[in-house]
Amino acid sequence: MERFVGIGEAAEVLGVSITTLRRWEAEGKLVAEHTPGGHRRYDLAKLRPDQFRAEQDARRKTIAYARVSSHDQKDDLERQKQVLELYCARQGWTFEVVADLGSGMNYNKKGLKRLLSAIIDGSVG
């Protein structure tokens, strides 16, 4: 996908009319680059960052994190994991669910350490 597009394609991507794009630009709601010939060019990464990022970060996965404080809440943890799995699957993401049982004040939880390591090494989308 080309990153910069003309006004017609930008309107199509956003599902609005060309007139609406021109009005949004006049109102300062979005910014268009202008070519030397005066034609508008829109940056798709700014118009639809969710779509553009998905193409760039296809190698990265999403990590969903669930945690409860005590063993008494183990059923709640399972429900959290199911909700996160369903949401991530519906988004079409490559994902992993990481879960921990323990206080939020305890920073030595195995799942939390794994999550932070994945973020630091750049493998998380």
Rank of each mutant, 00 (worst) to 15 (best):
M1I: 14
M1W: 14
E2L: 13
E2C: 03
R3E: 08
F4W: 08
F4V: 04
V5C: 05
G6C: 01
I7M: 09
A10V: 13
A11N: 00
E12T: 10
E12N: 08
E12Y: 12
V13Q: 01
V13I: 14
V13R: 07
L14P: 03
G15H: 07
G15N: 07
V16F: 10
S17H: 12
I18W: 03
T19Q: 10
T20G: 05
L21Y: 03
R22T: 01
R22F: 02
R23V: 04
W24Y: 10
W24T: 08
E25H: 09
E27Y: 11
E27I: 14
G28H: 12
K29L: 15
V31H: 06
V31Q: 07
V31E: 06
A32N: 12
A32M: 12
A32Y: 02
E33N: 08
E33Q: 11
H34M: 10
T35V: 11
G38C: 06
H39S: 13
R40V: 09
R40D: 07
R40S: 12
R41F: 07
Y42H: 04
L44P: 00
K46S: 09
K46M: 12
L47T: 05
L47P: 00
R48I: 13
R48H: 03
P49E: 10
P49M: 12
D50L: 11
Q51I: 02
F52S: 00
F52T: 05
F52K: 00
F52R: 01
F52A: 07
R53T: 11
R53W: 00
A54W: 01
E55C: 01
Q56T: 08
D57H: 02
D57E: 09
A58P: 00
R59W: 02
R59P: 00
R60A: 12
R60V: 15
I63Q: 07
I63P: 00
Y65V: 08
R67A: 02
R67N: 03
S69E: 01
S69K: 04
S70M: 06
S70Y: 13
S70H: 10
H71N: 11
D72N: 06
D72R: 11
Q73G: 05
Q73D: 07
Q73C: 00
K74W: 06
D75M: 09
D75W: 08
L77A: 13
R79G: 05
R79K: 15
Q80I: 05
Q82Y: 15
A89F: 11
G92C: 15
G92T: 15
W93R: 08
W93F: 13
A99W: 02
A99K: 02
A99T: 07
D100Q: 08
M105L: 14
Y107M: 14
N108Y: 15
K110P: 06
G111R: 06
L112M: 06
K113P: 02
S117D: 06
S117Q: 05
A118G: 05
I120V: 04
G122S: 05
S123D: 11
V124Y: 02
V124G: 04
G125R: 03
G125S: 10
G125Q: 03
